[in-house]
Design a protein around this nucleic acid. Structure first.
Lengths: 111, 111
DNA sequence: TACTAATATTAGCTTAAGCTAATATTAAGG
DNA sequence: CCTTAATATTAGCTTAAGCTAATATTAGTA
């Protein structure tokens, strides 16, 4: 599944925004999303699972709590996809400078 | 409408990929998408309209042809959104260096 | 002015995504 | 063990997104 398909949902994006600030328990995430979107714990849990399954987030157990963290790989795919458009807003940057600027390492581009 | 909501569709993404290589007529886009997705001219035209309305593409007339081009603004929104995650894959880059690296100008962040 | 080529629009169908409600699971504590 | 807290899962409903088929629009051309 393409990274953008996962990010094409406001709840999932919000969850990732929360996790971008650091690890959080499922309950923490539920609290935020529930306040802002008015949906149930079940719905949030389902979205957390989608994020896990798609590789956007990872979990570890802490007692009865589940602690979620962002997994950056899929987000880098998005970053890579944008490369083809960057010339449009960084017009005066030659190829090498762009490579350096974007901190790009050698990596396989599986579009 | 959030940029990601628009990009959460493979046909629309493919259209933007085509336009990333330069201006193209509606017919050109239809040819590519039709070959790859097997959908009708109508469907492609509808997606082109969505991209226009959302500010991802612009059109100009050339006789009976419509010439489409990428409009970078909305894609930069995506780039901006990713900022909050970049520390995850650019860990050894201080704030200023990141600013420079990302070629960031002063701009209003309306998340 | 009739005809054709290029594209857009509209109405209506179908499917899948995201939700709720209910229930299951798992771990900790008394 | 029994209970409670934290979280996950499942079944089923609803809605909206994306499609097709048909038709409209617009511009160039004979």
């Amino acid at each position: 599944m393409h990274a953008f398909d996962i990010l094409g949902d406001p709840v999932r994006r919000r969850i990732l925004e929360v996790l971008a600030t650091g690890e959080h328990s499922s309950g923490d995430v539920v609290a935020v999303v529930q306040r802002e979107f008015g949906i149930t714990q079940s719905a949030v849990s389902q979205q957390l699972r989608i994020l896990r399954d798609a590789g956007f987030a990872s979990v570890r157990a802490d007692g009865t709590r589940r602690i979620y963290a962002v997994e950056p790989g899929r987000l880098r795919e998005v970053d890579d996809w944008l490369d083809r458009f960057r010339a449009l807003w960084l017009p005066r940057l030659d190829a090498l400078a762009t490579e350096v600027a974007r901190g790009k390492r050698k990596r396989r581009h599986q579009d």
